[in-house]
């Protein structure tokens, strides 16, 4: 398998906030059901949040993106971005220059939209090895606007420059099952989620291959599909089939499970992705409930 121990050692040397993380709980703040014109969300699968007041929802079933902003303590929808070139968006990221990148779930390509929602083309990775064998499953932009794309077909994570030029790739670990999502921490560590085995792999910045970070966590995860990290380095894993969120400490230890399955506010029904903003708030794409839920993370 060729998994190196070096990245594990390096990562363990980073400061740990495990103690504080053990007390993280989710307090329900708000459920977002519709846009400002009253049109309800439909199977939202992806989301993006930045700063304290911006949330962009990939409203998958309505083939659009919806932007929410914080006003008087509540997130309210501001703008719908819809174009015929984007169908069933399943992931969305915001470029620092204002362009939006959304993963089209039907055609499985990354679409670039301008600030007003106008179509600006597709992300065509330049210079990647085996370009015809590329099927993006998930992607992230880091603080430098570099693209991290999980390529489902070739089982690799591609790293592209902000202009979309190939920089390098990391192959997914051999023997893995279904790699469904990735996350990139503030330190540049890439995390990779294997849904079938309930396993998380990681590659600290500059590493050439993934190493085991946590798991298998099958006793805590039924079928996880969403992954993110908070500024402290805690990982949040969205268990779609189990209707919950599992927290993993910076050293890979299991911290606990939050939330549960249901239809009432505060409960989740086949959730898919999670995003955490600088205000310590978590947004969860509660896909089966056709809504996005906002929680305060309380340490």
């Amino acid at each position: 398998m060729g998994i190196s121990l070096i990245p594990i050692v390096i990562y363990l040397l980073l400061p740990s906030f495990t103690g504080a993380a053990e007390r993280v709980t989710f307090r329900h703040l708000q459920s977002l059901y519709q846009d400002d014109r009253g049109k309800g969300l439909r199977e939202p699968e992806g989301l993006f949040c930045r700063d304290r007041n911006l949330l962009i929802v990939a409203d998958t079933g309505n083939d659009r993106l919806v932007e929410y902003r914080l006003q008087d303590g509540s997130f309210r929808s501001q703008q719908e971005r819809k174009t015929s070139e984007l169908a069933r968006p399943i992931g969305v990221q915001l470029h620092s220059k204002g362009d939006l990148y959304a993963l089209d779930g039907r055609k499985r390509r990354i679409v670039r939209l301008g600030p007003e929602g106008e179509f600006r083309g597709y992300l065509e990775p330049e210079g990647i090895p085996s370009p015809s064998l590329f099927v993006p499953r998930s992607f992230r932009l880091d603080a430098q606007d570099r693209f991290f794309i999980l390529d489902h077909f070739s089982r690799r994570v591609l790293i592209l420059s902000p202009e979309g030029k190939y920089q390098r790739q990391l192959l997914c670990p051999q023997g893995g099952g279904f790699f469904s999502d990735l996350a990139v921490s503030a330190q540049g560590t890439i995390f990779l989620l294997d849904s079938l085995k309930g396993t998380i792999y990681f590659a600290p910045k500059g590493e050439k291959e993934f190493a085991l970070f946590a798991g298998p966590l099958k006793e805590h995860l039924s079928f996880a599909v969403g992954l993110t990290t908070d500024p402290r380095g805690i990982l949040y894993v969205v268990d779609k089939h189990g209707g919950g969120v599992v927290l993993i400490a910076q050293d890979g230890t299991f911290l606990g499970r939050q939330l549960s399955l249901g239809w009432n506010e505060g409960l989740l029904y086949y959730p898919t992705q999670i995003c955490i903003n600088e205000n310590g708030e978590a947004f969860i794409a509660d896909q089966g409930n056709h809504r996005v839920q906002r929680f305060k993370l309380t340490p």
Partner: peptide
């Protein structure tokens, strides 16, 4: 409409 969730 589901009384617990207006979108369902």
């Amino acid at each position: 409409v589901d009384p617990r969730n207006r979108n369902r």
